[in-house]
Design a protein around this nucleic acid. Structure first.
Lengths: 178, 178
DNA sequence: TATTGTTATACTCTATAACTATA
DNA sequence: TATAGTTATAGAGTATAACAATA
């Protein structure tokens, strides 16, 4: 947690070699074999820690959802369709940052599992209105309970309720305004 | 920011249809055409907001680094090699969560740009010790300055110094202990 | 002409098996 | 036999162009 910010100086000039370039013999002895590497400034890099955290969270989400076989992306689609019935593919996809071509296979999957359905719009026969099926609603309800009792609960345990909310609020701000 | 937590109830029972299933006619009118969709519970989902934030941060990082043509992953490799000279490919890669096979092309790239070098170890002739070249050190130094003055500065501006540190600390905790 | 859903396609990331040279 | 680096390969995720149906 306490990483020397002064490490920047170390990259300015390699004073340990007259040629300014370590040769093989100089470097060979340096790695302390079995010991763990030092992350250094890396542990203070927002992008690095953000990416590692995201991977862990998705991993945990998948484990919590194993019984329902729902990925984070699929869960987000079901949530958004439930909250916004009567919207078409383009609207749902773009809200989630999914490109329309890539959304097709995803919907094919959800529809083949009878979790949601495409309904040809009567107003504009080009568009497909998305709705959850009864099974989709039931699965989503169970998914929400799993998320609350296993996934979110784990996070609360780790950070505490207040910190968890603060974390999500800051991430939302970064996502929206950075 | 204020998302109804009670929205969970809405998935319990679809009271608006005796069959429990909206037919096409029922759904058609629902989408308020031009209006933005409601994210609902999605904006409270850690995974969702984490992923969106990560994408924004990487995007910003790439813009800040455009002049040096360094990706977040490449920057992390250079930082780690600088901090841990004398380590081999396996050690550097695994610390970063990069699989050894995938690390080969990445190193080929950095080596072809003369930013780092593989040195055959004299102790164990199977392993390649990694070091930064002089150019690599210089580029990394410039990269650090760009990150500090453009990337981190933007984050400080957005959250403030204290919140930025709190955010990174919480993300590190999630990454390490979730 | 413009838009919706779709196909085809390509490029990046990530993941696994298997080879080679060393140990 | 085990390990380091490598190759080949396959699967996700993501990106763009273009087509058919419809507006």
């Amino acid at each position: 947690m306490t990483v020397s910010k002064a490490a920047e100086k170390s990259s300015e000039k390699p004073a340990d070699s007259a040629k300014g370039r370590k040769d093989a013999a100089e470097v060979q002895g340096q790695g302390a074999a079995g010991e763990a590497l030092q992350l250094g400034e890396l542990s203070e890099q927002l992008g690095y820690v953000l990416k590692r955290a995201q991977l862990k969270v998705f991993e945990n989400f998948l484990r919590c959802m194993a019984s329902l076989q729902l990925t984070p992306a699929q869960f987000s689609v079901l949530l958004l369709v439930e909250k916004n019935p009567g919207r078409n593919q383009t609207e749902i996809a773009s809200t989630l940052g999914i490109l329309r071509p890539n959304f097709v296979a995803m919907l094919d999957n959800l529809e083949s599992r009878d979790l949601c359905a495409r309904i040809r719009s009567t107003n504009d026969r080009r568009s497909h209105i998305l709705v959850l099926t009864d099974k989709g609603k039931a699965v989503l309800a169970r998914a929400k309970k799993l998320v609350a009792t296993k996934h979110e609960a784990r996070l609360n345990e780790l950070l505490g309720q207040a910190n968890r909310e603060a974390l999500i609020a800051m991430l939302a701000k970064v996502a929206n305004e950075f």
